[in-house]
Design a protein around this nucleic acid. Structure first.
Lengths: 406, 406
DNA sequence: TCCACTTTGGCAACGCTGTTGCCAAAGTGC
DNA sequence: GCACTTTGGCAACAGCGTTGCCAAAGTGGA
C-alpha cells in the first residue's frame, strides 16, 4: 500500500496508449499519496488474482479456489476473471474432477498476452531476453559489451538487441517496438549503485564516466517504451521471488547473496524487492565484520567482501564460507528473513562448500538463540547468472501482479 | 497490504461491541489473504485522514488540504470527515485566513475520543501510562516489579495498574475496564524476544521460567480488553515514529538503537515497525563485527553488544561509539534508512560522545561512497526510557492510523 | 433410466464507495 | 454595493464487491 512513486513503471516517455486492453486493465492508478479509489481497489484485486493465476502455472486454478485464497466472494472472482478473459489475459483450461457436483472450471494465465524485455549489462557482455507473461524466455541474445565505449554506444547496443528480439519474436507489422501490442517495456539490470526511482546511475565500478548518466530516460527516448533500471542483485532477487523461491503464500522474505567479482545482496521482503529510501539497500558486501581488518577496495577495513574474496583467493573456501555466513547471520538477525539464497560465479565454482559453510554459521546462531527449527535455511539459487536478465524483465511484469516496492 | 493477522489487535477475548462508534468506524476488516472490499477501502482512506489529522495536531488541517495530501477528491474527504465528526473523532476548530474567497474550515482530532493503555515491564520496575488519541499522556503510574515472582503475580500487577489508571482517568460507571467506551486496549512492552503475532514470550533474559508464557492471552482474559505485546525496542521505535521522528511525509524509515544493559534495535520502514517473519527482527546487538572477537553472553564472539558494553565498562566511550557506529553503518547500508536515533541509559549518560562518534562513522562511510549529503544523520532519541510505555500504548493506536505491520 | 442431491457459476438487484455537476454560503476587493 | 473567488454541501451517478436466486452440470442411489 505504501508506494511513493506511481507504480514503478513510469518513464519520461509518453504514456502507453492502453492498446489491447492489457495496459488499461491492470494499471494501478492510485492517488498521489496513498488515497485509494475504486479504480485502485479493482487494480489491487485484479493483480491479486493474476498473481495466483501465475503461481498456479500450467495446471491452472479454479474460481472458487481463487476466492478462498484472496478472501473475495466467488461472485467477485467471477467478475474479475470474466474481465480478464475478455481482455485475453486468462482462459478456461479444462475442468477438475467432480466431487459430487458440477466440476470446477480451471482457469490459467495466457502467457502470450504480455511480454517484457530484460537486459543484463555485465562487465564484458550484454545479455537480453524476451519473456512472456509467466516469465518464460521466448527469445534471447548475447553480445559483447564495452562499458568504456561511451554512453551512446552502449545505449545503441542495448536498443538494437531489444529491437531485434522483439522483431524476431513478436513480428510487429512495421518494425517499431511500440507496434507490438503486448510489449510492456524493457528492464535493465547492471552492477553498481543507482537510483531506481529516477533511473540514474551512480557509480559503475571502474567506469567513472557513467556517474549520473540518466540511462532510463535515454533508453526510453530511444525505444519509446517504458524502461526500468535496477541493480543486478535486485533483478536476480526479483526473478527468484517470481520463480517461487521463498514465496510461501506470496509473502515470503529472503536474501539473495551474489558472490562473483564482488559481493552484493538483493532483499525480498513480503514478496517485493526492498530498495530503501534512496534505492541503495542491499549493500551487503561492505558490511564490516572485522573491525580494523584488512583494507577493502571501498576504503574501509574488514568488509565481508574483502575478507571473503581474500579467502577465496587464498583457496580457503571454508573460511570464505564462514565469513559469508557471519554476514548472512547478521542480516538474518536484523531482518528475520525466511531464507538465504546463494549465487554468483564464485559460489557456482564450489556450491557445496558455501551452502554448507554458510548454513553451519546460521545453524549455530539458531542454536544459541534457543533454536526452534534449526535456523534460517540456506540454498543455492537456481539459474545462476542466467537469471539476472530474466529478473530484469520481471521489473516490468511485477507491477501487474501487485509486486510493487515493499 | 500484507497483513497476515487481521489487523494486529486481535485477541482471544470477545470482540469489542463497537460501542460509541469508534471501534466500528475504523476497524480494518480486510479479506483473509489480501483481497480488498469496499469496507477495506473505506477503512484505508479513513485511517489516512485520521493520520493526517493527528499529524496536524492542535493547529488542525482543512478539508482541501486533506484532499491534496491523500489524493482523494474534496467531496470524498468531506464525506469521510463528516462521518468522523458524527462519530466524535474529529471536530471543527476555527477557520483559516481567507485567500480571496470563503475561508477554509479547520478540522482537528478530538483527543478524548480514544484512549490506550501502555505498560513497560523493565527489569525492576513497571511503568504504565494512559494516553489519548493523539498520544498525550493522560495519567501514569509506577510500581516495583519482580519478574522472578512468577507469572500470576506479574499479570496481576500489570492488571491492577491498568485498572487503577483507567478508573482514575476515565471514571467508568462500575469500575470495569470494558465500561470505558473509548479504551482501545492495552499494549505491553518488555525486553527479550517474543512472538508478537501470538503474544507469547520466548526468552526473558535471566528468567527462564517465562519461556513460552502466553502473556497476551493471560492479560486479555484477566482484563477483557484487547492486548498487544511487543519488544521494548519496537515499542520505543513506534513511539518515535508517531512523535514525528523521521516521519517525513509519513513514510520515513529509521532505526532506533537502544543501549542500556543490553543493545537492541527497533526498525521503522515506511512508517511501520518491521518485525520480520517470526517477529524477531531488530536483533542488532548480536551482530558480529569482530570475527573471533571477545566472547559475548549469547555464546558468539565479537558481537556489537559485547564490544560496545565492554568499551563502556573500560570507560572508553569513543571506542564504544565507534563500535556502535560500525554496527549502525552496516544496518544503514543493508536497509538504506533515513535516520539513526540513539537511546537508552548508557547513551543518556554521555549523549554527545555517542551521537558524534556514531555520526562520524556514518559520515566516513558516506564519503567513501561518493558522499551526497553527508550520510545518514544521527540524533538523540527524545524522551529517553520514558517513551517505551507510551510506545506500547501506540501499539493499539497505530492500526487506527493505518500504521500496521509493514 | 430416472430422480434426488451436490456443486458450480452466472444473472439481477442491492448497498456502499468515491466521483461529478451544481449551487448556496462566505469571504475579498474594487 | 457588486463582481469575483473560494469553500463545501446536496443530489445524481458509475462502478466496486455482495447477496439472493437459479440454471447448468455433474454424482449416486433407486
Amino acid at each position: 500500500m505504501n508506494s511513493a512513486n506511481g507504480g514503478g513503471t513510469g518513464t519520461g516517455a509518453s504514456p502507453a496508449e492502453s492498446g489491447g486492453g492489457l495496459g488499461g486493465a491492470v494499471e494501478g492508478v492510485r492517488g498521489a499519496a496513498g488515497g485509494a479509489n475504486l479504480l485502485a481497489l479493482r487494480s489491487h484485486n485484479t493483480a491479486l488474482v493474476l498473481d495466483l493465476l501465475r503461481t498456479a502455472g500450467a495446471e491452472g486454478i479454479s474460481r472458487l479456489e481463487l476466492a478462498e485464497r484472496t478472501g473475495l466472494t466467488p461472485q467477485a472472482v467471477s467478475k474479475i476473471t470474466a474481465r480478464l478473459r475478455a481482455d485475453g489475459l486468462a482462459a478456461e483450461a479444462g475442468r477438475r474432477a467432480s466431487t459430487g457436483g458440477k466440476p470446477r472450471t480451471v482457469l490459467r494465465l495466457v502467457p502470450q498476452a504480455g511480454h517484457a524485455l530484460g537486459v543484463h549489462l555485465d562487465r564484458d557482455e550484454l545479455r537480453a531476453v524476451l519473456v512472456d507473461l509467466v516469465g518464460a524466455v521466448v527469445a534471447q541474445r548475447r553480445a559483447p559489451l564495452g562499458l568504456g565505449a561511451g554512453a551512446d554506444a552502449v545505449v545503441e547496443g542495448v536498443a538494437r538487441a531489444a529491437e531485434e528480439l522483439a522483431a524476431d519474436a513478436l513480428r510487429p507489422p512495421d518494425g517499431a517496438l511500440r507496434a507490438a501490442p503486448t510489449l510492456l517495456g524493457l528492464g535493465v539490470a547492471l552492477p553498481g549503485p543507482l537510483d531506481h526511482a529516477r533511473g540514474v546511475l551512480h557509480r559503475v565500478t571502474g567506469f567513472p564516466e557513467w556517474d549520473g548518466f540518466p540511462l532510463r530516460d535515454a533508453l526510453a527516448r530511444r525505444l519509446d517504451v517504458p524502461v526500468v533500471v535496477d541493480k543486478d542483485t535486485n533483478a536476480a532477487a526479483l526473478g527468484l521471488a517470481v520463480a517461487g523461491e521463498g514465496a510461501r503464500g506470496g509473502a515470503g522474505s529472503f536474501a539473495y547473496l551474489h558472490l562473483g567479482t564482488g559481493l552484493g545482496a538483493g532483499l525480498v521482503i513480503g514478496g517485493g524487492v526492498h530498495r530503501g529510501a534512496r534505492t541503495g539497500a542491499g549493500e551487503f558486501g561492505h558490511q564490516v565484520i572485522q573491525l580494523d581488518g584488512p583494507p577493502c577496495t571501498c576504503g574501509a577495513r574488514g568488509c565481508v567482501e574483502a575478507l571473503c574474496l581474500g579467502a577465496v583467493a587464498r583457496g580457503d573456501l571454508d573460511e570464505a564460507a564462514r565469513v559469508l555466513g557471519a554476514g548472512a547471520a547478521n542480516l538474518a538477525g536484523l531482518l528475520d528473513i525466511d531464507l538465504v539464497l546463494l549465487g554468483g560465479r564464485t559460489v557456482a565454482a564450489a556450491p557445496e562448500a558455501f551452502v554448507h559453510g554458510v548454513g553451519a554459521v546460521l545453524a549455530a546462531r539458531a542454536r544459541r538463540e534457543g533454536g526452534q527449527g534449526g535456523g534460517v535455511p540456506v540454498r543455492l539459487a537456481p539459474g545462476g547468472t542466467r537469471g539476472v536478465a530474466e529478473g530484469a524483465a520481471q521489473l516490468l511484469l511485477a507491477p501487474l501482479f501487485g509486486r510493487g516496492d515493499a
